[in-house]
Structures are given as structure tokens and as C-alpha cells.
Write a protein that binds this DNA or RNA. Structure first.
Lengths: 136, 136
DNA sequence: ATTAACTGTAATTAAACTTATTACAGTTAT
DNA sequence: ATAACTGTAATAAGTTTAATTACAGTTAAT
């Protein structure tokens, strides 16, 4: 996770939650985040697949939250963008002659998964709503 | 943290712990991990700065643990290689006109730091020794 | 004292990943 | 008909990561 996807999605969802019942365009959202509108549309498509957002095409179109922000947890959001373990990547040493090298990825896998789970459990306790409510 | 540095350093330390009182060469270590020896030497230099490892130059030289593996925690190791937040990077939206965009990085910073702290506290409970003892 | 086998580090290249941009087909309101 | 959108593919540019090359310095053994 050495990218901005979590921050970007949180930003999008915060805007949608702060301006409910309004169709926000990807261009307008992109200006707030200072990123390219195409990136916003790509992330909106992820949010769409999660069932969190609905969109309206055509003129005066845009996106809107389709689920209450208290039903979306930070863990849900993290899982939607997570593309690696918190502790990083493993080397490909499984085919080495070394007895440690042969086995270490099995042990690292356990440690990496445990660590991911700790993060996810902590994030399950935080809702999008409580994040959004911090803004006046 | 979308790199192999944590895995690499764990691997190095595990070998050093499994073969105590022996000078292991960077080339030998690199063969076990299946990475380039120069990368091993770079990480050894990090371990050296932490005071965990000592090295002997010249022929029959190599590296050796200089601290007991029960005194090194996974949190120490994580902190030594950590170069980003667990939840990733932030966008640079601070200078936007949008009131949310202006403030969001402050709130994200809090959330990102809290999440990092959770990982670190969990890893503080795990020692290098308990990891290494898993190997026969 | 010469050689072989190391460390330590800088500089460069190559590969992988991330973000931005261009392009365009399709949709909808006016 | 047109303007303002979505959705998505394709490509380019930028950034990060890992590998490689190179070499000066150290040490052990002959």
C-alpha cells in the first residue's frame, strides 16, 4: 500500500457524505482532491461495485452515496483498496537450497496475515460517519 | 510499504540467529534469500546502525548477531524499514478551495498515525527469537 | 608482498508500480 | 442539436524498488 488509493476513496466518500442528495461530478470531486478526474471515475467505479454509490449519467449527472455512512467501516474501505500486506512483499526464496529460505515464506505469510488482521479489526471499529462528522 | 525490505531483514536476522558465532558472508545470505548481495549489504548496514549486527571485513569475513534475538522485537524491525504509513500516501489537496480538501489531510494524518501505532503495538509483543524458534 | 575473499558504498540501469493524460463511445437535460 | 456528464481503454509520464556494475579498502593465508 504505497499509493494514494485509500486517501482518495476516503476523500470521495467524505464529499459524497457531506453533500448528500446532490449529484457531484467527477470533475468537481477531482478539483477538491487535486487529482485527475479519470482517477476519480475509476475509484467511483470501485465504490459502485461495493454498492456504496450510485451514479447518474449525462448532463447534470454525477454520483451520490447510496448507503448510510454509518454502515460503511474503514475496514470495508481498506479491504476495497488493499493490494498488498501491511508488512510488504515477500521474496521468492522458496526454491533455494537453504533450509531457512525454503520455509521462511510460510512463517512470513502467517505473520503478514496476522498483522493485516490486526489492522482490519481496528478499522472495523471506525465508521465513515465518525470520520466525516469531524468536518464542520 | 510495498517493498520486500521487512521480509529481507527478517530473513537476514533469522539466518544470523540460526548460525550464531559464525561469520556469514553477504553472498551466502543473498543465495538463501535469492536476492542480490549488494542489497544484503545495504540492509546489513541498517542492522549495523541499529547495533544488532557486527561485521568483519576481509577474507573469511561476514556478519554476526551482536544482540540477543529476544531483545529485538518485530516492532523494532518494522520501525527500521518503515518508509510510509500503513494506509498509504496522502494526496496534496491542502491548497484546494474546497473546505473538505483543505482539512482532510489533518484528519487523515491522525487516522494514519493511529493505524501505524496499532501495528507497532502489536509487533512489540513479538520477538525475533519467537519467530526464529519456529524453524528447527 | 601477493593473492583471494571479503565489506562498504556510490552510481547506474532495469523493472515494476502508480498517476496523469488522451481519446472516445454512450447517456441525459435543455 | 448541443452541452455536460459517465465509463472505460489505451498510452505516457513519473516514482519507487531492485539489480547490477564498479571499485576502494580490509584481512587471512600462503
Amino acid at each position: 500500500m504505497n499509493n494514494t488509493r485509500f486517501a482518495t476513496i476516503i476523500h470521495i466518500l467524505t464529499l459524497l457524505a457531506k453533500y448528500p442528495d446532490q449529484w457531484l461530478s467527477s470533475e468537481w470531486i477531482a478539483e477538491s482532491i487535486k487529482i485527475n478526474p479519470v482517477i476519480v471515475r475509476k475509484e467511483l467505479s470501485v465504490l459502485h461495485k461495493q454498492g456504496w454509490v450510485m451514479s447518474k449519467k449525462g448532463k447534470d449527472g454525477g454520483s451520490m452515496l447510496s448507503q448510510s455512512s454509518c454502515e460503511i467501516s474503514m475496514a470495508d474501505i481498506f479491504n476495497a483498496v488493499k493490494n498488498s500486506n501491511v508488512l510488504g512483499k515477500k521474496n521468492t526464496c522458496d526454491d533455494t537450497n537453504c533450509p531457512i529460505g525454503k520455509e521462511i515464506n510460510i512463517e512470513l505469510e502467517k505473520l503478514f496475515n496476522e498483522t493485516d488482521d490486526i489492522v482490519i479489526h481496528a478499522l472495523e471499529k471506525k465508521s465513515l460517519k465518525s470520520f466525516v462528522d469531524q468536518f464542520k
